[in-house]
């Protein structure tokens, strides 16, 4: 493991990037969500139970930035659902390893869902299991596995997590 200063710098870099990430989904322009990823990224949403059992499928399973673009396009232009939004609350990133210009980290999250006429509901909790590539003063996601604590999803899963 690298020295404390390096880990502290990387932790704050990842925290900054993830701050922008949740702002983009919850309050910004979610068309920009794919820009947090490298072109040949991998993004998957899976439950903790399925993750522990090495299940291959996911609630979303995408292996390119273009697929992430398509997800947003479909969500905004094609799919039908009641107006709703998410509110992500993230924990501190925990850097688990550093190799060259790439690092692995985990971050806990809670996401509330606010539906048109409904209250604020706790929608999902879980952790991101990530691999980032540090590029200049930025970091891009190479892999993001969104591991949901529960196997249950209420109603539907729309926006990315």
């Amino acid at each position: 493991m690298s020295n404390l200063t390096q880990i502290r710098d990387l932790t704050s870099l990842i925290a900054m990037v993830q701050g922008r990430y949740v702002h983009t989904i919850d309050d910004g322009d979610c068309h920009e969500w794919p820009d947090f990823f490298v072109d040949d990224c991998f993004y998957k949403i899976i439950s903790a139970d399925n993750y522990a059992r090495n299940m291959e499928a996911g609630l979303m399973w995408m292996d390119s930035k273009a697929m992430l673009h398509d997800r947003i396009l479909s969500l905004l232009e094609a799919n039908v659902y009641e107006r709703h939004s998410y509110r992500h609350i993230l924990g501190q990133p925990f850097i688990t390893s550093v190799e060259g210009d790439e690092l692995e980290s985990e971050t806990s999250f809670m996401v509330a869902r606010i539906t048109r006429e409904g209250p604020t509901d706790l929608f999902v909790t879980g952790r991101y299991v990530d691999r980032y590539r540090v590029i200049d003063d930025d970091a891009k996601l190479v892999t993001r596995i969104v591991v949901l604590d529960s196997n249950q999803i209420d109603t539907l899963l729309g926006f990315p997590l």
Partner: peptide
């Protein structure tokens, strides 16, 4: 089995 989920 590739995955299993419950949708409420």
């Amino acid at each position: 089995i590739l995955g299993n989920y419950i949708q409420v």
